[in-house]
Amino acid sequence: MFLNAVVIVLQEILEAALILSLFLAFVRYLNLENNDSVLRRRIWVTLSIIFGILLAWTYSHNFSRISDSFDYVGLEITNASIHSISCFFLVLFAWLLPPQQLIFDVSHRLLALTLCMGIVVMLAILREGSEIMQLVGGILNQGQAGPPIFYGGVVGAGIGVSIGVLLYYALTGLSKERSLRTCVLLLALTTGNMAAQTILLLNQADWLPFTPTAWDTGGLLSESSVLGQLAYALIGYEATPSIMQVGAYTLGLVIVLLSPISRLAWSTWHGKAS
């Protein structure tokens, strides 16, 4: 039970930690902490985590009802909605990011940007938190395997949070240009991932027609391997994606990469940065 708990908790925490680290790196890039929004910045993180946990708790408590709805594919529909909303706000976030580094240019979009980040983090916590609650709540209530699950959860959470923290320091430790490029790229990959997940879930619910597998890289990098799981959690790696999933992934990726901020990231930085 120890290892299962590690794997499940790690996967979930890693996905949420990645998004949070990414946003915090963006916030730092935007120099928002120099603005008068220092308080608000701390608050949006805390608030979205709290709301996310509350939502996750509500989700877990209505789990059976949601699961039974839509002819027993309610979970897929709900999760697909959550993924597509996250995807939408990630795209909105990318397009709202100002193409200049000037603070005053940002301030009027600050609320909208903060809202986007808050919603995405909240939904990430909702998605990942509800699964952890299912595992921990469902199994602990039966009085089985308490310590192994507890230890496993702690180890999984510890590894996930550590990777998140180190990722944040890695992103912010890079030069401004590289940091921005990496952040934009990660944002694009995350968006693509969300879009592909939405398609997969709708496929699983049979709401979308079957499309053949695009390729099979299972021999190259197995999804069950440690590296494969890490890649799955970070960029949504699938060994055998369907054509429609690949299409959705590419669409999400491209829409983010078309945004003004990413054009700035790959422009030659004509002395715009101070």
């Binding site: 949070v161 180190l166 320091y169």
Partner: peptide, 12 residues
């Protein structure tokens, strides 16, 4: 935080 994160990561 970076030292504790590294320690936690490697230890775990």
């Amino acid at each position: 935080t970076s030292i504790v994160s590294l320690l936690t990561l490697f230890n775990f």
